[in-house]
């Protein structure tokens, strides 16, 4: 038996503790130990972006982070995007209104990534959105309505 490591981490402001294997990825721990399944795992190799989260504010693929590295870190996932369930983030709202999602498996990762973009660049061009989201594969939408949803949310957020 391998010795499992104890980690404590903050996810969306809540403190969690768990035991994990030394080579276990953060997405695995989020999903399978903490049962926070909003973060998706489409490839485990950094290619699809479905596992996008914020790690101390940085946008990263949680499949490329070791769970043990998360010790003492602040993590933000899709579950933290809506602090109150009756108040959606503008991105969430526009994804719903413009139909920026079809099957929805890519959606949590895309929302987390888009939120990071808009914090950094409140007025991105279409090209900037497309390149920022290049790490988030979507096979359903052809990206058109995803880009438009982000644009609409950005516009609304700029107006404040």
């Amino acid at each position: 038996m391998t010795k499992r490591s104890h980690i404590s981490l903050s996810v969306n402001g809540d403190e969690y503790e768990c035991l994990c294997e030394p080579d276990q990825s953060l997405v695995d721990v989020l999903r399978n130990e903490l049962e926070l399944t909003g973060t998706k795992e489409g490839c485990s190799t950094g290619d699809c972006g479905a596992c996008s989260i914020r790690l101390d504010g940085d946008l990263v693929c949680s499949c490329l982070v070791l769970a043990v590295e998360a010790e003492g870190k602040e993590i933000e996932t899709i579950e933290g995007m809506t602090p109150k369930s009756d108040e959606l983030h503008p991105l969430q709202r526009h994804f719903l209104e413009i139909n920026g999602l079809q099957c929805g498996i890519c959606t949590p990762g895309i929302l987390v990534a888009a939120k990071a973009l808009l914090e950094k660049n409140p007025d991105p061009t279409e090209t900037e959105i497309r390149f920022w989201l290049a790490g988030n594969l979507c096979r359903c939408t052809g990206y058109d309505k995803i880009i438009r949803s982000v644009q609409a949310a950005a516009e609304e957020m700029r107006k404040g």
């Binding site: 399944t37 909003g38 973060t39 999602l101 959606t107």
Partner: peptide
């Protein structure tokens, strides 16, 4: 707005895994 949409933008929708 599609009825299954809300759960998909909040991460609550349950997919296969």
């Amino acid at each position: 707005v599609k009825h299954d949409g809300l759960d998909k933008v909040t991460g609550r929708a349950k997919f296969g895994a």
